[in-house]
């Protein structure tokens, strides 16, 4: 029984990371139909931002303050990735609306360049980020130990999810965003600047990627290619969950994260991945456009 609980916890932990990454993707994809392959590199930017903040703290702040660097790193990562995303949208993405496959290729190119940039700035080897002392150890329940780091990431995801929910469903900018998502032409007719909504939405998606990168530093060392490791899984979350609603992404992340952990536990790491893929394809037979699909009368969407 304990084993199952532990595996389930691991699964939720994996899901939470996937969710954090896929959250930004599902928004950009759902709203703009843009496949941002550079999302992984935005994660990488967030991770390196955390690394830089840590180094700054180590150099310029008293040692007693060091533990708090992480609290600063999260918003800073968000802002840095937000700015990168804004520049990316204004410089490239806006030329690619209506051409999702082309956006995929172009952003892949951007990703390659960003990776190389990171390699020349920080060096090719992985760098470690020392996690703050207050996240060491774990919560003991019965015989199981739940590491604080993992719990912290789960909490972080819940906070992000809640804030996203407030933004999308309970704020004016969020309402405009949903309006553009549901019917772009009509939204434009009613005076919404779809250009600006697109730019801000893309930047927010990128910013969340930055937070995801920051969270990844807690799990292990970071390198220039850290994003590519997660990006395909994150896209699978979007495919499985469907676009347009937060709940779909949550479902997709939980589905993939938990099934991945369980299958890998029951079989081997490589076979587990195959089984998860087969399950996803099987699921898509039942619901071809994912768990939740935006209803629309348009035939080609």
């Amino acid at each position: 029984m304990d084993v199952i609980i532990l595996q389930l916890f691991n699964g939720i932990s994996v899901s939470s990371i996937l969710l954090l990454i896929a959250l930004g993707l599902s928004i950009t994809f759902g709203l703009m139909k843009v496949i941002n392959m550079a999302h992984g590199e935005l994660i990488m930017i967030g991770a390196y931002t955390a690394y830089v903040v840590q180094n700054l703290f180590a150099d310029y702040m008293p040692a007693s303050m060091f533990g708090w660097y992480f609290a600063i790193a999260i918003p800073v990562s968000f802002i840095v990735a937000f700015i990168f995303g804004l520049v990316l949208e204004m410089g490239l993405i806006r030329f690619l609306y209506g051409r999702p496959l082309d956006s995929l290729l172009a952003t892949w190119g951007v990703g390659l360049m960003l990776q190389q940039l990171a390699r020349s700035v920080f060096g090719a080897p992985n760098v470690g980020v020392k996690s703050p002392a207050w996240l060491d150890g774990g919560l003991t329940v019965g015989d199981n130990v739940f590491p604080y780091k993992r719990l912290f990431i789960i909490g972080l995801v819940l906070v992000c999810l809640f804030v996203m929910y407030l933004y999308i469903y309970r704020s004016h900018p969020g309402r405009r965003m949903r309006a553009v998502m549901q019917n772009r032409e009509m939204a434009a007719c009613l005076g919404i600047s779809t250009r600006r909504v697109d730019a801000v939405t893309f930047a927010i998606g990128s910013g969340i990627a930055g937070i995801a990168g920051c969270a990844l530093t807690l799990i292990g060392p970071i390198g220039p290619a850290i994003g590519t490791y997660y990006i395909v899984d994150a896209f699978m979350v979007v495919v499985l969950g469907g676009v347009g609603k937060l709940v779909g992404t949550v479902f997709g992340a939980l589905g993939i994260g938990i099934s991945n952990t369980l299958f890998e536990y029951w079989t081997t790491a490589s076979l587990g991945k195959v089984l998860v893929f087969l399950c996803i394809v099987a699921f898509l037979q039942w619901k071809p456009s994912g768990f939740v699909a935006m209803r629309s009368r348009s035939l080609d969407n």
Binding site: L92, L96, L105, A106, W108, G109, V110, G111, M113, Q116
Partner: peptide, 9 residues
Amino acid sequence: GALFVVVVV
């Protein structure tokens, strides 16, 4: 990477 961007755009 640049080639990808230039060709697509």
